[in-house]
Each structure stands twice: as structure tokens, then as C-alpha cells.
Design a binder for these strands. Structure first.
Lengths: 214, 214
DNA sequence: TAGGATTTGTGCGTATGTATT
DNA sequence: TAATACATACGCACAAATCCT
């Protein structure tokens, strides 16, 4: 049996994933009692998790109504992306890591997975790989505050990104993603964390432009 | 009677202030029952507030021990300051506000208050004015995500700053603060939000250098 | 308009964990 | 080592708010 904190994080992480992978699309009503039963606990610890999700803006609890997955308006999303671009670049200059074989191995792993995704592209698999690659990007800086803020902002808009991507040309988006990973791999094997961060920023910027057009 | 959300924020805000003004210095044990009685509620809604403070790193609840105000190690604090400097500068470039008479009036108000502080400097009054001026700085950008992240990071280190300031030359620090406000006032009356942001960044940077020396 | 069904918010007793004597 | 005191974590019952018939 895990301790309470670990278990709480497990439930939090699971719900966050479901929201961001659109298992719970915006507007979904989450039932405290149902979720408590599913995770084998009571309402109290589950409410602790929902409270955190509410503080982070992923759900909103309304007395007498329910706990509802939020939507994000376009202006707010653009603000978040503006900031995320800056933070992505900062990962290359604020306490960047020393690149080791482990780092190189990790990015090669993503390269392989992205090629596999190109052969069989689905929106969900794309979202999952994109999320995993984002977490890899976080590890490029040792600045914990930067990592925490970046993660929080990422999860705030991830579901909106996925919703938009689903309406766009999936194969084309996966192709762009593959090239981003290739470019990142080049930067990483050359030991250039700063370049990897700039590549990330550039791709976020281009992604926003495509989102605005659609 | 306020609604539940407003009341919750009021309690949250009050406790956050007490922690950051060192009414509750690091290591203090907060009693759920005592605080619940003080705010005229039961333990349950108070625990909701403590949960948020814990998620933000200001306190840590340990089963069987208590809820303890955290300390911050020096390395973590330097990481936060590195990031805060960047965010302060970004306030001038990400959705900067149009400066109005109201903005100018606000900064003049701070100028007056800082002069008053110089005549009768206390660590606590300094901390309070510094906090209020920080909130003014937040209003220079319309990017809500930037404001939220900046605020969160500020409160994460504010109590450590105050603890250090108390051991330094208070009059000298107040003097520097007054000059920062004067410079900011010049930038603002000239309608130059970007300059105001750069001034802020510069002063955070210099503050960190002084903190490291002490 | 009224009332019942459903949902989140609150209060409190109990379980569980920790520290001290 | 054991027992006592005391803190948070949990589960449940009920209050309050909303929605729908």
C-alpha cells in the first residue's frame, strides 16, 4: 500500500490525463461519488484532488451543480502560449543540464516513437507522445521553478490543442512533429541545450500560427 | 455574508500574508482547529485552504505531526529569483497595458508611501509596501497567465526575502527601494511600460546580489 | 409554482500516525 | 518498551444549492 501522498498524486495525475486526452472533454460533469468508488476511496480524499485541479483551472466546482471540466477561451489560450514560448526558450539559459548519454538515448527513443507514429497516426497516440516529449523538454533545465510553471501552463492548454489538432490535417501535424524531434536530436547530440530550447520555442510559435488559421 | 469562494479566498489570502510577513515564521506549526475557530468555521473548509497553501509550497502537512510553515533552501530560492527576473521583464513585452492617468496616480501613491517609509522605516512596513508595489507591477501586463505565475513565485520567496532584509541595513534597503519607485515613476509617466519592466528586473537582480553577499 | 432528485459544501466523530514521557 | 497526548487523514451524515418535472 502506497502512502497517502503518493496515492493522491496517482489519482491527480490520472484525472489530469483524462481531461487533457479528452476522455473528459470540456463541459463534462465529474461525479465525486463515482470517482471515489472507482479509485477505491471516499469523497474526502478525492475532493482534495479535485480542489487542486480547480486551483489549476482544469475544473470548476459549483455548489449544487457538479464539478465541470473547464473550457478555455481563445484569448486566454493565446496568453498562455505567449508565456509558454518564453519559458521554453528559458529552459536553454536558466540552469541548463549537462547533456549525457542518457539524454541522447532519451531523444533517440522519441525519434523512434515519432517515426512509428507517422506510420500509424491517431490523435490520441499523438497527444500522448507529445505529452511525453514535453516532459522530456522539461528535464533540459535544472531550474525546478521553471519546470513547475511550464508544466502547469502546458496542462492548462493541452486539451484545447488536442481538440484543435483533431480538426486539422493530422498526418501533416505528425510530420511537423517528427521534424521537430529530428532537429532536437541534432541539437542534443551536439550538446547544445540552448539550440534545443530555441527549436522548441520556434515550433510552439508555428503551432500557434497554424491554430489561429484554422 | 459572502459566498463560500470569496470567504475561502479571504482566509487563504490572510494566511498567506501571515506566512510572508513572518507572523508565522518557517517551522511554525499551524493548528487546523485553532484557525478554524478564529475564522468562525469548521476544520473542513480550513483544510481546503491549507491544501492550496501546501500545493503552493508554503506549508507542509505531515500526518500525526501538524501543518508546518516550510523553509526554502538557498538554491531553490536562487532558481525562483532567476525565473522571477525573466518574468518581470516579460511584463513589458507580453500584452503590456496602455498607461492611463489611473496608472500614473497609482505609482505616485507608491512614491509618497515610500517617502513616508524612509522617514520611519520598519521591516514590516517595508515588507507590506514592497508587496503592494509588487502587485502594482503585476497590473502592467494584461497577460493573466504571466500575472498568476509571477504572483505565485513572489509569494514563494517573500518570507525568505524579509528574513534576510531584517539582518541587513534596513535604511539602505529602503533607500534603494525609493529610488526604484522614482525610476519606475519616470518610466510610467513617459508611457514606457517596457522600461518600467526592465527597471524592475534590474532591481531584482541587484537585490539577489546583495542577498548572496550577506 | 412547488417539490423531489441530485450534487457539492460543511461539521464532526473516528482511524491512523507521531512524539514524548 | 509501553502508554498517553495530540495532530492530521478519512468516512459518513446532513445542510445548502441547483435543476427538472
Amino acid at each position: 500500500m502506497q502512502d497517502a501522498t503518493s496515492n493522491r498524486f496517482r489519482v491527480y495525475s490520472e484525472l489530469r490525463s483524462r481531461i487533457c486526452l479528452l476522455d473528459y472533454p470540456p463541459g463534462t460533469r465529474l461525479s465525486e461519488e463515482t470517482l471515489a468508488a472507482e479509485f477505491g476511496t471516499s469523497r474526502t480524499p478525492l475532493r482534495r484532488v479535485l480542489a487542486r485541479l480547480e486551483d489549476e483551472g482544469l475544473v470548476q466546482s459549483i455548489h449544487g451543480v457538479g464539478t465541470i471540466v473547464t473550457d478555455v477561451d481563445i484569448e486566454e489560450m493565446l496568453h498562455v502560449y505567449d508565456l509558454r514560448m518564453e519559458l521554453a526558450q528559458l529552459a536553454g539559459s536558466l540552469s541548463p543540464i549537462d547533456i549525457t548519454d542518457q539524454t541522447i538515448q532519451a531523444v533517440r527513443h522519441f525519434h523512434n516513437q515519432s517515426e512509428a507514429l507517422k506510420r500509424d497516426p491517431t490523435a490520441r497516440a499523438f497527444a500522448q507522445l507529445n505529452m511525453a516529449f514535453f516532459h522530456f523538454g522539461l528535464t533540459l533545465s535544472n531550474n525546478v521553478a521553471l519546470r513547475d510553471m511550464s508544466e502547469r501552463l502546458y496542462y492548462k492548454t493541452a486539451r484545447i490543442w488536442l481538440k484543435s489538432i483533431s480538426k486539422m490535417d493530422l498526418a501533416a501535424e505528425v510530420d511537423i512533429f517528427c521534424r521537430e524531434i529530428e532537429e532536437t536530436q541534432n541539437a542534443i547530440v551536439n550538446g547544445d541545450t540552448s539550440a534545443a530550447a530555441l527549436i522548441r520555442r520556434a515550433h510552439i510559435s508555428m503551432c500557434v500560427h497554424r491554430l489561429r488559421k484554422s
